[in-house]
C-alpha cells in the first residue's frame, strides 16, 4: 500500500513537471521587461510584434536548445565515464571555449569568416582542443581512474582561467567589458539565426546519442562488458565526444559558459525515471530544455535594473548541488 502511494506521488510529480515545463515554454515569451499585449502581437507592423517574434520567441527556443545540448552532453559524459560528476563544464571544456572566445575578442577579430563570427570559431576550437587534450592526457591514467580525469579537467579549467586573466590584464576597458559579459553567460539573441543553428546541432546530438543507445547501455555497465559484446569502445567514445563538443563549442561561443545544467538535469531525470540509460535520453533532452527556459524566465521576470546573466543563476543553483552530489556519492 505504501509502495503504491509512492508510485502515485511520483506519477503526479512527473505529470506536474511535464505540464509546468510545457506551459513555461508557451508563456515564457510573454514575460520580460516590456509587457506585451496579445492583440498588439498579432499586428505585424507593431513594435510589440517585433519584440515578440524577433527577440522573445527566438530567445526561448535558443534557451530550450541550449538546455537540451547541455543536458544531453552531461548524460553522455556521465555514461561514457561512469561518473555522475562528469559534464563538459566540470571537465574544463566550457572553459576552453571561453578562452578561445577571449583570445578572439582580445585580437579584435570581429569580422566574419564564411558567415560565422570569429568569436564562435575560436570558441569552438577551444572546446575541441580541450577534448583532444583530455583524451591525450587520459592515456597516462589507469583505465578505471575517472576521478583523476575529473581532476585533470579542473586543472585545465584553472589554467585557462589564469590565461584569461592575462588577457584581462592586457585588454582595453572595452574589450574587458565584452569579455566579462561573455564569461557570465547570456541567452539574449537577436533574430532566428542562432536558435536555428542551435536547434540543428541539438537534433544532431540527440540523433547520435539515440542511435548509439544500446552501445551506451553496455558502456554504462563497464568498458570490459562493452568490448566483450563486440563494441569498439574507443571508437564509439571518440565519435560521441566529438559530436558533443561540436554542440558545446558552438553553444558556448554564442552564449558564454552556462554551468551545471548538465549535472542537475540528468540527475533529476534519473530520480524521476529510475531506469537504464536508453530510456532516459529523450526525457533528458526535453527536461534540459524546460529547465533552462525556466531559469531564463526567472531572470527576465525579476525586475532588476538590467537582466541577470543566466550563467549566474545556474551556477547559484548548481554549485550547492555539485557539493550535494559529491557528499551523497561518498556516503555510499
Amino acid at each position: 500500500m505504501e509502495l503504491n502511494l509512492t508510485i502515485w506521488y511520483l506519477t503526479m510529480i512527473k505529470i506536474g513537471i511535464w505540464l509546468v515545463g510545457i506551459s513555461i515554454l508557451i508563456f515564457s515569451p510573454f514575460i520580460g521587461a516590456v509587457n506585451l499585449n496579445i492583440s498588439e502581437i498579432l499586428n505585424a507592423n507593431s513594435l510589440t510584434s517585433q519584440i515578440f517574434f524577433d527577440l522573445r520567441v527566438p530567445r526561448v527556443l535558443f534557451a530550450f536548445f541550449a538546455g537540451t545540448i547541455l543536458s544531453l552532453s552531461g548524460l553522455l559524459f556521465q555514461t561514457l565515464f561512469r561518473n555522475a560528476l562528469m559534464t563538459p563544464y566540470t571537465l574544463g571544456i566550457s572553459s576552453g571555449a571561453v578562452l578561445g572566445a577571449g583570445i578572439a575578442i582580445k585580437l579584435g577579430l570581429s569580422s566574419l569568416f564564411f558567415g560565422v563570427a570569429a568569436i564562435s570559431i575560436f570558441g569552438f576550437f577551444g572546446a575541441i582542443l580541450t577534448v583532444f587534450l583530455l583524451i591525450y592526457l587520459s592515456q597516462f591514467l589507469k583505465n578505471s581512474q575517472h576521478e583523476s580525469l575529473l581532476l585533470l579537467g579542473i586543472a585545465l579549467s584553472l589554467f585557462y582561467t589564469s590565461a584569461l586573466m592575462i588577457i584581462f590584464y592586457l585588454g582595453s576597458a572595452m574589450q574587458n567589458d565584452m569579455l566579462i559579459r561573455f564569461t557570465m553567460g547570456s541567452l539574449s539573441v537577436i533574430g532566428w539565426q542562432s536558435p536555428i543553428l542551435l536547434g540543428v546541432i541539438a537534433f544532431i546530438l540527440l540523433f547520435f546519442i539515440y542511435i548509439y543507445r544500446f552501445e551506451l547501455q553496455l558502456l554504462s555497465i563497464s568498458d570490459e562488458s562493452a568490448t566483450l559484446k563486440g563494441i569498439n569502445t574507443k571508437g564509439v567514445t571518440l565519435l560521441l565526444l566529438i559530436v558533443s563538443s561540436l554542440g558545446i563549442g558552438t553553444l558556448v561561443s554564442i552564449s558564454g559558459p552556462i554551468g551545471f545544467v548538465g549535472l542537475i538535469v540528468p540527475h533529476m531525470v534519473t530520480k524521476l525515471y529510475p531506469s537504464t540509460v536508453n530510456h532516459r535520453i529523450i526525457k533528458t533532452a526535453f527536461f534540459g530544455g524546460f529547465f533552462l527556459v525556466f531559469c531564463d524566465t526567472i531572470t527576465r521576470g525579476l525586475s532588476t535594473q538590467s537582466e541577470l546573466p543566466i550563467g549566474i543563476i545556474t551556477a547559484l543553483i548548481g554549485g550547492p548541488f555539485f557539493i550535494y552530489l559529491i557528499i551523497s556519492r561518498s556516503k555510499r
Binding site: 544500446f214 547501455q217 553496455l218 554504462s220 555497465i221 563497464s222
Partner: peptide, 19 residues
C-alpha cells in the same frame, strides 16, 4: 561490476543478444 544501478535482470540478459 555495474555502474548503471537501474538496469533490470531482464535488460541485462537481453544485452547478450547485442552481437
Amino acid at each position: 561490476a555495474v555502474y548503471d544501478s537501474f538496469i533490470t535482470l531482464y535488460e541485462f540478459v537481453l544485452l547478450g543478444r547485442f552481437p
